[in-house]
Amino acid sequence: MKRLLHVWAKHEKYVNVVLFAAAVVYPLIFTRQYLINVGILCLVYVLLSLSLNVLTGYMGITGLGWAGFFGIGAYTAAILSTKAGWNFILTFLAAMAVTGMFGLLIGMPTRKLSGRYVAIVTMAFCEICRALETNMDWLTRGSRGIPNIPRLELFGMKFNKQAQYYLILFLVLLAVIVMGRIVNSRIGRGVLAVKDDDIAASAMGVNPFSYKVMIFGVAASLAGLAGAFYAHYIGFIDPSNFTFDQSTIIISMTIMGGLGNPMGSVLGAVTLTVLPEILRPLMDVRQIVYGVMLIIMMIVRPQGILGGFNLKHIRQQDSVHKEVRNE
């Protein structure tokens, strides 16, 4: 197991390329609509789980109401495309901007609150969003939902299933790259420092509050992007898509996959999306199987399957050992 980790660390680039290639080839091999739909759903959840990982894995703030941001993104895109006729590129950007703003707003209480209290704030936020979506009838059509959201199209060409799959794959890739750059930078170090010890961080010149707010904004806007794609892809949204249950699914993916590791989010999201589909024949029993698996996970590896690994650190440590051996 440990050997495997070192091998992975050494060849991380190739592993990533192979995984990405597999994701590219998938809809070409499995051309059944159902399988492509499952693939798209996986990638939507990967994006959501990644975005939550930014907040929970790197910043150490548990986001319990992630579906709230998902919903804001979806509703922003749905309203702008049905009422104002905006193209999806514009609705995507608008959804990111709007959810980002809400992220910054929800980040504000971190000035006074910490840990689990912030988690409660995010949970309440999700409920407030759902209540507003249900009751602001003039804007959201309440529980009747918004139907006929324009499908994705560019220059008059409608996206087929494959094209939609590639679009969300591209968005996930973008999110992974952006996350990687943030983590391996001055800002990423600031974020980790605040997570580890915010008093020491502030003594070293990092403003913990502004980092928390900023990361809330970044994470939320990625969730908003996932929401915007989802709205255009599915064509109909109503408040029942963005409940606390949805939030629970997203955070299960992030935590089970592994906190602070982008590959963890991919693994968590894909597993927890595909598993219920595979277990479909078991009908009612599948919820039990699902629950038991989560409990086993929590006992065996509470930090998540890929949690607590930093491949870059492993690589660096290995390089030193090699130098020592060569001398």
Binding site: R186, R189, L192, A193, D196, A201
Partner: peptide
């Protein structure tokens, strides 16, 4: 900062 390496701890010092 326990989850950061020695090098990263010092690099954080340059933050300000």
């Amino acid at each position: 900062f326990p989850t950061m390496t020695v090098l990263e701890n010092v690099m954080l010092g340059v933050h300000s």
